[in-house]
């Protein structure tokens, strides 16, 4: 466990030592601020961050790949993966440490948007219901963690950070828009109901929307946590497979 925390700690610290970390912070703050001003801080609207959280998935789409792209890719490119993989850290320990580091950075990234909630409470009368705001932040972390795990797997497969970013970006876009687009292509009728159910099951947006309404559905939490775990384990397998190639 201490090895995982060591790797995570180094990862978080390195984000703040490099321009890419600060670019991520600036980009996310800009997008989040813009979204907040245009959706929630509007006159004659109920005091809520529901619209803000409903767009959470789209907000994270350009930012998370920037976090995930360097997790393993940079180690592969610079050759630092060799001393790391010959240290006592296991392959699973390395990817879990990297994932945890990325997740902590994501939390640090999201944390300043709490000021948006504070502003909303300050300017609104009556004050907004805190339940949907708390569950909205939980959704932001769960969705972000899920996307991060997808980006981590892609980062393990290539030593090219630009490629890792582009592939992660389009994979997340696929997760967000794919089920809706494919659903529109399915012909109406009972015979295709199973396909509609499958697409509804894997869709990210409806789950995130439930959180923004203040509904914390256990199945949604399980979906994001188990999905993230699956991609982290796949990343460990992809890293281990480098030894056998």
């Amino acid at each position: 466990m201490s090895v995982i925390l060591t790797i995570a700690r180094r990862e978080v610290a390195s984000f703040f030592r490099l321009p890419v970390g600060w670019v991520c912070v600036a980009l996310f703050m800009f997008l989040a601020g813009l979204l907040m001003v245009t959706t929630s801080l509007t006159p004659d609207q109920p005091a809520s961050m529901r619209a803000f959280f409903a767009f959470a998935g789209w907000l994270l789409m350009p930012v998370v790949p920037a976090v995930s792209m360097r997790l393993i890719s940079e180690e592969l490119r610079s050759g630092t993966i060799e001393p790391l993989m010959t240290s006592p850290a296991s392959d699973l320990g390395i990817v879990v440490g990297k994932y945890l580091g990325g997740l902590i950075f994501l939390a640090v990234l999201i944390l300043p948007t709490a000021t948006h909630a504070a502003v909303l409470v300050w300017v609104s009368d009556p004050a907004p219901d805190p339940g949907p705001i708390v569950s909205g932040y939980l959704a932001l972390m769960l969705v972000g963690g899920f996307y991060l795990s997808v980006g981590l797997l892609i980062s393990t497969l290539t030593g090219n950070q630009t490629l890792a970013y582009v592939l992660a970006f389009f994979s997340i876009l696929g997760l967000l828009a794919g089920p809706g687009l494919l659903g529109a292509l399915i012909p109406p009728g009972e015979g295709w109901s199973w396909a509609r159910e499958v697409l509804a099951g894997v869709a990210v947006n409806p789950r995130a929307a439930d959180f923004s309404r203040g509904v914390v559905d256990t199945s949604h939490v399980v979906y994001f946590v188990s999905g993230s775990a699956l991609f982290v384990v796949l990343s460990a397998l992809a890293l281990a497979s480098r030894r056998w190639r």
């Binding site: 090895v3 180094r10 390195s14 030592r17 490099l18 610079s78 850290a89």
Partner: peptide, 18 residues
Amino acid sequence: PLYAEMSVRGYLDYRARL
């Protein structure tokens, strides 16, 4: 191969923690 953004002490401490 080393982490260019780390200090020498920071890197050695990191390796010792590993």
